[in-house]
Design a protein around this nucleic acid. Sequence first.
DNA 1: CTATATGCAAAATTTTTGCATCGTT
DNA 2: AACGATGCAAAAATTTTGCATATAG
Lengths: 131, 131
Amino acid sequence: MDVDAVEQVLKEHGCTITPQRRAVLRFLDGNLDHPSAARIYEAVTADLPVSSRATVYNTLALLVQLGAVGLVRGTDGEMRYDPNTAPHHHLSCDQCGRLEDVPATAVTLLLRGQPAAGEVRFTGRCPTCLP
Amino acid sequence: MDVDAVEQVLKEHGCTITPQRRAVLRFLDGNLDHPSAARIYEAVTADLPVSSRATVYNTLALLVQLGAVGLVRGTDGEMRYDPNTAPHHHLSCDQCGRLEDVPATAVTLLLRGQPAAGEVRFTGRCPTCLP
DNA sequence: CTATATGCAAAATTTTTGCATCGTT
DNA sequence: AACGATGCAAAAATTTTGCATATAG
């Protein structure tokens, strides 16, 4: 995800570039934490004087629709947003709840050279939480 | 999951066998649909004169704690309950939302003979929804 | 200036909790 | 009779929606 590119796409779709949308984009850019909407709202309100949850949700829904950010549901049920739009997979840690990226290449290797036909979610312990 | 065995385990843990618990067990036994709490509540109330959501949730939480049923979060965020307690994996269909079992052996084969260290969730199209 | 986005509040959904009552053993 | 379970209602938590107001272009 590239902020400038996404703003370009927004304009092409007749959407305006608002400070709120810019703040969401700025926070998401390069973020590898798979933040929840609540976390994003928190970051945006720290940045701007005020902002509302609804706006953050609207913005995220828009970005997902445009394919500018990915969306995975955490094991805890929260939606998590992912600026990494390249095909990849996830490891969800039972212990700490973190969501980690698993490169597509790693899964392709596991599957004897065939790329997976969808997202693969591994649920278990992340490297940090392994005994 | 075997109803009689689970009732035995309940007794061993000092838990009573109530009609509500029996109804939940009866509905879950052999059910391959990964039903949600709402679906289970619906089935139980059709069976018993009345029952409350809280009781169904209590019962399900108890069964999960005792390891008598498994628990996976659907892609839609709902919890789904699974009487199949043997290690296995799941395929979540993007199209129809169904959750299907994927035998542990299938994944072990994919992983060159090594069993997976946790649940693996494949997200994509189920056989029925494939083009 | 006009279309669009924002913000607030309230609704919808799923799950949890507190508490009085009821039922199992 | 005692302890645990039930049921109701209300609370939490997350996401969605309706509508009046404000703002970007």
